[in-house]
Computed example of a mutant assay.
Amino acid sequence: MQVSPHTAEQGFQGPLIIKHGGTYTGKWESKDADVPAIDIRTKEPVIIENAVIRGAGPLIRSVGYGANITVRNTEGYGITPTPYSDYKKPRRFLNVDVFRNIVIENCLLQSTAGIYLGVQYVGDGTPANTVKIKYNKVRNIDGRVYDGLAIVQFVQFNYRGEVPHIEIAWNEVVNEPNKSAVEDNINIYNSRGTATSPIRIHNNYIQGAFPFPANEKKYTGGGIITDSPGTDSTMATAYLKVYDNQLVGLGNYCLGIAGGNNIEMYQNRAIVSARFEDGSLFQCWSGGIWAKDYYKLNSTYNNAMHHNVLGTMGQTGTWRNDILDSTFVAAATYENVLLDGTITQAHEKEEYRLWLNKLKSNNITIGPINN
């Protein structure tokens, strides 16, 4: 373990460099956007637990080591961004390129830029070499960097290679207008599960997706999307099941297929009043679900959207439940349930009550668990 000199808040140590596997517990902080609070430089299994991490840039980073990282029962906070060199350094809770196993469970993410997995999977395809993102409490995914914005998500996959046994489940994500700057809450980009073990995104509660500032008209983010400008034989998004999620108060869209194959989105609930807390209407577009062969690379087929419950209003205060620019290639099955009547903020609040009841009935605790 190497701890670099750093002026940190009382009770916090400066940035931590981990060169050997093991379990690490403590409080670490970096006030420099170019320096991660924890930099993992080993392929050996690393467990970070019962920790508190604060960063002006990446909180936990591993670049080029084939990471095997477990983070649990840990709090992560984004702090004031600072100037950066070379490229934008958003405050990712976890930023990893080459990986074999990633587990993030029972953590708190506050004003961070979420979780990014990119480049390449180098695991062995077993349940011990996969991705699990579960039971986390997330507040205000925030892409603000020094003097600007970066495109960030709660979860972004951008890796190459098929990965079985992936699960993103039982996370509570709440983004507030003008306190968050999130693009897609979950974006699966040129990343794949397998035919026998698709990526499972289920039982998440996702509330809020807005431009920054929130009253802007242009916004390209939203809820859960598959995006795939890759070709089918090499890297197109494929093999996903997205189900039993609750999507509440989102701008632009709730569920989307912009590309990919063998994707099934079903039994989700999309409830959008398209109004802010003060009752004013969204200025950006808002809608329900959509599917489109956006890139036209012959890699979008065999997809389905069915038995989703839709109640979404537009920025004019009227219904907006379209499946936009859809084709039978993009979504061969489209059978969903449209709610009657005007959707209000009371409906959105009821969704949160349903979520809390679901957690209770399944005996699930989200966020850090006090020992």
Score class of each variant (00 low, 15 high):
56 A>D: 14
371 N>I: 13
47 I>Y: 09
48 I>N: 01
57 G>Q: 01
138 V>F: 11
183 E>F: 10
370 N>P: 08
279 G>Q: 13
152 V>Y: 01
311 G>Q: 14
237 T>K: 00
191 S>E: 11
39 D>F: 10
272 V>N: 15
306 H>A: 01
85 S>L: 03
128 A>W: 11
121 Y>T: 12
120 Q>T: 15
186 I>Y: 04
36 P>Y: 04
332 A>R: 12
98 V>A: 07
228 S>P: 00
355 W>V: 06
217 K>P: 09
181 A>M: 07
135 Y>I: 00
96 V>E: 00
355 W>F: 04
141 I>Y: 04
201 I>E: 00
292 K>L: 07
95 N>A: 07
64 G>M: 05
96 V>I: 15
303 N>K: 03
142 D>W: 06
298 N>P: 07
266 Y>D: 02
164 P>E: 08
184 D>M: 04
88 K>H: 10
292 K>S: 12
37 A>I: 08
161 G>N: 06
70 T>N: 02
319 W>S: 09
105 E>C: 00
363 N>V: 00
54 R>I: 12
314 G>C: 05
370 N>A: 11
14 G>S: 07
339 L>T: 03
277 E>F: 05
30 S>H: 04
283 Q>N: 14
148 G>N: 01
220 T>C: 05
39 D>T: 11
61 R>H: 10
341 G>A: 07
353 R>S: 12
203 N>K: 14
251 G>D: 01
221 G>S: 00
64 G>T: 04
112 T>I: 05
85 S>N: 12
327 T>G: 03
42 T>F: 05
357 N>T: 07
289 I>G: 02
322 D>G: 02
187 N>A: 02
146 Y>K: 14
133 I>E: 02
262 N>Q: 02
200 R>H: 12
253 Y>M: 01
54 R>V: 15
181 A>C: 10
298 N>K: 12
68 N>G: 08
313 M>Q: 05
10 Q>V: 13
39 D>G: 11
66 G>N: 08
290 W>S: 01
64 G>I: 03
317 G>R: 15
308 N>D: 13
137 K>I: 03
37 A>C: 03
93 F>W: 06
115 I>F: 10
268 N>T: 02
364 I>W: 09
352 Y>T: 15
272 V>G: 03
23 T>R: 12
289 I>K: 07
269 R>L: 02
79 I>W: 05
223 G>F: 01
69 I>M: 06
83 P>C: 06
213 P>G: 08
133 I>H: 05
16 L>E: 08
158 N>M: 04
66 G>L: 02
333 T>K: 03
82 T>V: 08
6 H>C: 14
150 A>P: 15
183 E>Y: 09
335 E>N: 06
159 Y>R: 06
27 K>A: 14
201 I>R: 01
230 G>A: 14
61 R>D: 13
133 I>K: 01
50 N>V: 03
365 T>K: 09
133 I>Y: 05
194 T>V: 04
137 K>S: 09
83 P>D: 13
310 L>F: 01
333 T>C: 00
55 G>Y: 09
82 T>I: 00
137 K>P: 11
235 M>N: 10
254 C>W: 10
98 V>N: 02
